[in-house]
């Protein structure tokens, strides 16, 4: 008896050590970036990225440059990212929750066809559509605008699927009660059912915000001028073989990750349930 207890303890310690090692590898890039962000760009060019700390050359200068350099282009990108992420998240939640609810609650002709279409669209890489979508945004006159970035992908099939799975599990008695009280169908949705879906909204809000904040391929195609870039596009435009922008690049990267890390540390459960609720069912 004592013997088995001892082996379990030893096993636990080994597992713990391995997990700590793995965590160190996983977290290392964050530490490297943070340290490099305080060094002049030429250091990065000459020595690459490393953990050497030399207080003589380290300073907050790079962070100051983010505000002043290139007439504050970086601040523009930050602002654009904030606006696009907010627009995308609010619109996506409003629209996809309605669709998901509609698919879950009503029986109507074509419902199964629409649901299958949602699933099918989830399985097609949107990257193959970038050319015709580009021409479409030119035609719709929303190229190089916030709307051009947001509109084509705001009704995310994944979010529709997520809300549909969530709404299927809602108690239908509330709907009947609402009808008896004379509520219209939209009144029932907005006043009674939507509040019941709050946990789903929380989880999806975070996931949609994260997707939008980090999205790259589509904004790269829609946004044509520097002052309209988002953070991802702006930062990628700083990468050159000559290394002349390294001062901005690392500090700018660090600042761009911080909002999501704060959001994650405050609300880890929502991140994780957004990925899993109703997501994986063979």
């Amino acid at each position: 008896m004592q013997n088995t207890k001892k082996t379990i303890n030893a096993k636990n310690i080994i597992v713990l050590v391995l997990l700590i090692l793995a965590s160190a590898i996983i977290l290392a890039p964050f530490l490297f970036m943070l340290i490099s962000s305080f060094k002049p760009g030429r250091e990065l060019m000459r020595y690459g990225i490393n953990l050497n700390i030399d207080l003589n050359i380290m300073s907050f200068d790079n962070y100051g440059l983010l505000v002043t350099d290139r007439d504050g282009a970086y601040m523009h990108w930050y602002k654009n990212s904030l606006i696009i992420t907010t627009m995308h998240t609010v619109l996506a939640l409003f629209l996809t929750s309605m669709v998901g609810y509609g698919l879950a609650v009503y029986n109507f002709k074509g419902r199964n066809l629409i649901f299958l279409t949602v699933l099918a669209v989830m399985m097609v890489p949107i990257e193959i559509l970038i050319l015709p979508l580009y021409r479409l945004t030119v035609f719709m006159n929303i190229i190089n605008t916030y709307w051009g970035v947001v509109l084509p992908f705001v009704v995310s099939p994944f979010a529709v699927f997520f809300f549909r799975q969530y709404a299927v599990g809602l108690p239908k008695e509330f709907i009947d009660a609402g009808r008896i009280d004379g509520c219209g169908e939209f009144g029932i949705y907005f006043r009674i059912m939507m509040p019941l879906m709050t946990p789903a909204f929380g989880a999806m809000a975070i996931l949609q915000a994260m997707t939008s904040w980090n999205s790259f391929v589509w904004p790269l195609i829609v946004l044509r001028t520097t002052e309209n870039f988002t953070l991802t596009i702006g930062l990628s435009s700083l990468i050159t073989p000559y290394g002349n922008n390294y001062d901005l690049l690392i500090a700018g990267s660090v600042m761009s990750v911080i909002p999501l890390i704060v959001l994650f540390l405050l609300n880890q459960k929502a991140f994780i349930s957004g990925l899993t609720i109703g997501g994986v069912k063979g």
Binding site: L27, M33, R46, G48, T232, F271
Partner: peptide
């Protein structure tokens, strides 16, 4: 939570790190 944290970064930010981590300098990561 620690294992999930890299998923918070954009491809660009993660790519910037690994681009320099896999740099050619002998002093890089």
């Amino acid at each position: 939570s620690i294992f999930f944290m890299p998923a918070l970064t954009s491809v660009i930010v993660a790519g910037i790190f690994f681009r320099y981590a896999f740099g050619e300098q002998e002093t890089t990561f």
